[in-house]
Design a protein around this nucleic acid. Sequence first.
DNA 1: AATATTAATCGTATATTGACGATTAACGAT
DNA 2: ATCGTTAATCGTCAATATACGATTAATATT
Lengths: 102, 102
Amino acid sequence: MKTDKNKDNDRKKLAQLSKALSHPYRVQIIEILSNLPSDKQCMVSSLVDQLPIAQSTVSQHLKILKEAGWIKGRIEGPKVCYCLEKNIFEDYQQLIDNIQNN
Amino acid sequence: MKTDKNKDNDRKKLAQLSKALSHPYRVQIIEILSNLPSDKQCMVSSLVDQLPIAQSTVSQHLKILKEAGWIKGRIEGPKVCYCLEKNIFEDYQQLIDNIQNN
DNA sequence: AATATTAATCGTATATTGACGATTAACGAT
DNA sequence: ATCGTTAATCGTCAATATACGATTAATATT
């Protein structure tokens, strides 16, 4: 049985994840990361190459996705390699399912 | 096979639906509407009673949800009754599934 | 016709977002 | 130690979002 406070937290978390997904370029970043072959890199410069926006703007979008919990970054020398947070799609789906049945 | 333009549209649509879901009160509105017993009303004044914000602000949130495609309103005399757009959760899930497997 | 109820819209103020170029920081290679 | 590469952060500007009270519009009731 969930308390009102728990429900509030779930709503806030769902809103937060949704907000991170609320920009087409950020959707595209998630799309790119979730379709990476396991042997390829996902460094920022590669994302910058695939998006029609400045490097600083890509970094900004990555920060938003990271803070919301969609992705994480691993430092590799001077590069940073991003990948999806484990089970994040399942977690997101769970939050959506929860609001559908009280 | 999807064209780049189709993919762009899907990203835009997913971003749009996500943006509408990106505020806790709007999540709560969706939650209320999806948990309505079939015999109960869902008029705006009822939503206003359940949310700690002004009537005008509730209307604004409803407009955002309606324009994004989450809900629709039916006029009943001086009242307006809102409900979820049919299959919207399934549609949303479909868009998310699509970005997961190219 | 006058009044009450309901909900949308308007006007406004403040906060947040999204974009950019410039700068900084961290590391590798020379 | 210097230079080049990579990515984060800073500062800024314009646009959008969020909240409110006041007003308007539409209908029901008296």
